[in-house]
Structure formats: C-alpha cells, structure tokens
Nucleic acid binder design. Structure first.
Lengths: 121, 121
DNA sequence: CAGCATCCCGTGGGATACTG
DNA sequence: CAGTATCCCACGGGATGCTG
C-alpha cells in the first residue's frame, strides 16, 4: 500500500487553474446563456435588441458588456449592418461552438436535479 | 431553492431554465472548486481549516456560506467529530459526485483554451 | 437601434473580534 | 477549531438620458 505525502500541498493545482481559466472566460450568470442562445440560432439575424428581448432579465448595459467580452475571446462575432438606424448582428463562431458540450452538460444536470428534487419529500 | 418557471417567450425556455437551475446550485466561483477538491479527496479527513488552507483565496466567511449551501443541496455531508476542540469534516456525497462530469469538462475546456491562446500571434 | 455616460443604491465579501 | 457577529467599503448593476 502506497502512502501519499502527508503534508499534501493544494492538490491538483493544474486542474484548479484550468477551471479558474474557464470561469474567467465563461463565468457569471449570462455568458453561457448567451452562447446557448446564439448556438441554437446560428443562421438567424440576432440583433442586439432581439437578444435583449429574448434573454429575460438581462439589461442592455450588462448585455453590452457580456457581448464585448465574448467577442474579445473570439467566441462570438459582431457585425454592423448597413441599415437605416444602424443594427448590429451577433453570431456564434466555430470556436464558440466548443462551449456546446459544457452547455449540454449543465442543461442535463439541471434537468436531472429538478427531477430529483420533485421526487423527494 | 429552485426558481419558479418564468413566463418567458424566449426560445428553448426549458433549456434556459435548466441551466439557470444549475447556476443557482453550482454557480459562483467557489462551489465547483470545492466539489472538485472533495471529490479528489474522498477518503480524507477534510476539515474546515484544511479546505480553507488548500483552496487559495477563499475566506472563512465565504467558505462557510458555500459549504452550507452545498450541504443544503445534498452535494456534501457535514460531520462533527468528537475531538478536544471540536472539528468538522466535510465529504462528497454520492449525489455530489454527479458534478464530476461538469468539472471534467470545465477543466478540459480551460486547458484547451489555454493552449489555443498560446498558439496564437 | 446600439451602446456609452451618469447617477445611485444594495450587497457581497474583506477585516476583525468574539463564542462554544 | 468552526463558525458567528459587526463594521465597512468597493463595485456590480439598475434607471435614465444622450449620441451617432
């Protein structure tokens, strides 16, 4: 039987670092919701206003900040359209689609949890 | 702690709701780090003090709050030990282990992202 | 319409001290 | 040791108004 060092310094630093990286980029309550929205509506003209209306509870100020950060990290693409009053369309990038597996697992976990809770008591 | 259904015309309401449920339970920057820590150290005596030391950056006040919420949602178990100055050990529950797939994906994504960034420019 | 500037408030969380 | 209680401040984010 092999013993581990007793004074075990913070275990798995690498993993913690990687998770923190992910939180930094995708963290907060909105980014993954926005990515989910854009992934499902890949071929649609998703204007700022439309996103703001569809994602219930988000304010324009916060949405603006979130979109900017997502664009900075190349997860979404921003395109100004030459309309009368200017409109802007946002879309998912190929790289942005890599978050789909995260989203799917979070959705699945949430659904399972809800079922678990309902079956209690 | 589950949110009430939103009266929400947005597409894919169910998915958004499920994701929001997950955020409510596992959200914030600490809960998944704590679960990850406890999953890896399943058979170890994880006292409050030990966790506080190993998870760099967390304060006792916040750790206390997070542990309470995780226990409330049955993701971890709290056990007082009959030591001289009382100690408390926390451990992952079977249900808590269901978060491992989430953690694994977040770790993996973070690592991949880091590699991507390094290979740019 | 998109999104920035301002003002303003609630609260999350740090620092510190105290208790069982 | 494992928390709890207080004080206190920074800042996230709402509301509103303005501009290109």
């Amino acid at each position: 039987m092999i013993k581990k060092p007793l004074t075990d310094p913070a275990p798995c630093t690498g993993n913690l670092l990687a998770m923190t990286d992910t939180f930094d980029i995708l963290g907060g309550k909105w980014k993954l919701l926005i990515l989910h929205y854009l992934i499902l509506r890949e071929d649609i003209n998703n204007t700022f206003k439309k996103i703001e209306r569809d994602i219930v509870g988000i304010s324009a100020k916060v949405l603006s900040k979130e979109l900017k950060e997502l664009e900075f990290n190349q997860l979404i693409k921003r395109e100004e359209q030459k309309t009368k009053p200017i409109t802007v369309a946002y879309s998912i990038t190929e790289y942005g689609k890599s978050t789909k597996e995260i989203i799917d697992i979070l959705v699945q976990w949430g659904q399972t949890h809800r079922i678990k809770i309902l079956n209690e008591d």
